[in-house]
C-alpha cells in the first residue's frame, strides 16, 4: 500500500493535475473568503466554505479521473494485479494519495478563521469543525470519483461521469422539491423506485425468479401499507430521499454550527461503501 501511495502522490505532482487541483480550490476559497468574510465582514468562515462546495463539482473530477481509468488504459493495472499486493491495498493506496492532495488546500484554509480572529470576533471551534466536515465531504466525493474511474478506461468519461453525479448530488435538495406530494403520486414513485431496484438486482444476479419474488413482496408491502395507513405516503418520497442528501450534514455544520456526529458516521460509511464498490468493480473486470 505504501509503495502505491507514494507513487500516486508523486505522480500527482509530477503531472500538473495535483497543482491545478490545489490552485483551483485555494483560489476559490480565497475569493469567497475575501467576498464574504473580509469585504462583507461576516464572522463565520464556514459560510464561505458552503459556497466553495460548488467548486467541488469542477475540481473533484480532475483529481479522481485518472486514478483507475489511466491504469487500465496503459495496462499498468496488470502490474498491480499480478504483484503480491491485495486489491484493497491498491485501492487504499490510491485513495489516500488523493485524500492527501485534497488535504493541502484544506490545511491552507485553516488560516482563514485565524485571519478573522486577528481582525475581530471569530468562532474558531465552529469554523474548524466545519473545515473538518468539509474535508470529510471532499473525501466522500473522492470515493465516488474513484469508483466512477474504476468503471471506465477513458479519463474523459470518468471526469464527465463524476461531474454529472456530483452535480445531481449538489442539486439533490432542490430536485426533491419537484417530487409529488400526494399519497397517490408517491405510491407510484415508490413502485418505480422498487422496480428500478429489482432491475438492478436482476442485472447483477441474472436470476429472474429472485427478482420476481422481490418485486412481488415489495409491491405487496407497498399496497398493504397503503391500505392500512394512507397518510404515511404523503410526501413519503421526498422524506425518504432527502435523507440521502450528501450536503445536508455539512450544512448542519456550516450554517447551524452543530457538530453532527451522525453526519460524520454517514460520510464515513459512504466512503467505505464506495471503496468497497471500487473493489468489486476491479474484481468483476477480471471475471468478465
Amino acid at each position: 500500500m505504501k509503495a502505491i501511495y507514494k507513487r500516486e502522490l508523486k505522480s500527482y505532482f509530477d503531472n500538473v493535475i495535483g497543482f491545478v487541483f490545489i490552485a483551483i480550490l485555494v483560489a476559490f476559497t480565497g475569493i469567497y473568503f475575501l467576498a464574504y468574510n473580509l469585504a462583507g465582514g461576516y464572522p463565520y468562515f464556514s459560510y464561505s466554505l458552503g459556497s466553495v462546495l460548488f467548486i467541488f463539482m469542477l475540481a473533484m473530477p480532475i483529481l479522481t479521473m485518472k486514478s483507475f481509468s489511466d491504469e487500465r488504459k496503459l495496462k499498468t493495472d496488470q502490474l498491480l494485479l499480478t504483484s503480491p499486493v491485495s486489491i484493497s491495498s491498491i485501492i487504499l493506496g490510491k485513495y489516500f494519495a488523493m485524500v492527501t492532495v485534497f488535504a493541502v488546500p484544506v490545511c491552507i484554509s485553516f488560516l482563514c478563521p485565524i485571519i478573522i480572529k486577528a481582525n475581530g470576533t471569530a468562532f474558531l471551534v465552529a469554523d474548524f469543525s466545519t473545515i473538518f466536515a468539509f474535508f470529510l465531504l471532499g473525501c466522500v466525493y473522492i470515493a465516488i470519483g474513484m469508483f466512477i474511474s474504476s468503471l471506465t478506461e477513458s479519463q474523459i468519461i470518468s471526469a464527465v461521469g463524476t461531474f454529472g453525479i456530483l452535480l445531481v448530488l449538489y442539486l439533490w435538495p432542490s430536485l426533491i422539491e419537484f417530487l409529488p406530494t400526494t399519497a397517490n403520486g408517491n405510491i407510484i414513485g415508490f413502485i418505480i423506485l422498487l422496480t428500478a431496484l429489482v432491475f438492478i438486482i436482476y442485472s447483477i444476479t441474472k436470476n429472474w425468479l429472485i427478482s420476481a419474488v422481490l418485486e412481488g413482496i415489495g409491491l405487496a408491502a407497498i399496497l398493504i401499507t397503503y391500505i392500512v395507513n394512507k397518510d404515511i405516503f404523503d410526501n413519503g418520497l421526498s422524506k425518504l430521499l432527502s435523507n440521502i442528501s450528501l450536503t445536508a450534514p455539512f450544512e448542519t455544520f456550516a450554517y447551524n454550527q452543530i457538530f453532527d456526529i451522525g453526519g460524520i458516521i454517514y460520510y464515513i460509511s459512504i466512503i467505505a461503501a464506495f471503496s468497497f464498490l471500487t473493489m468489486q468493480s476491479l474484481q468483476k473486470r477480471r471475471w468478465s
Binding site: K2, A3, I4, K6, R7, S11, D14, N15, L74, K75, T76, D77, Q78, L79, L80, T82, S83, P84, V85
Partner: peptide, 22 residues
C-alpha cells in the same frame, strides 16, 4: 505481459524501485 506495464511518467530507476517495493 504482452504490453509492458510501464508508468511512463517515471524514470527507469524510479519505476524499478516502485516495482521492488510492490
Amino acid at each position: 505481459p504482452e504490453i509492458p506495464p510501464l508508468y511512463t511518467d517515471m524514470t527507469v530507476y524510479e519505476y524499478l524501485s516502485f516495482v521492488a517495493e510492490l
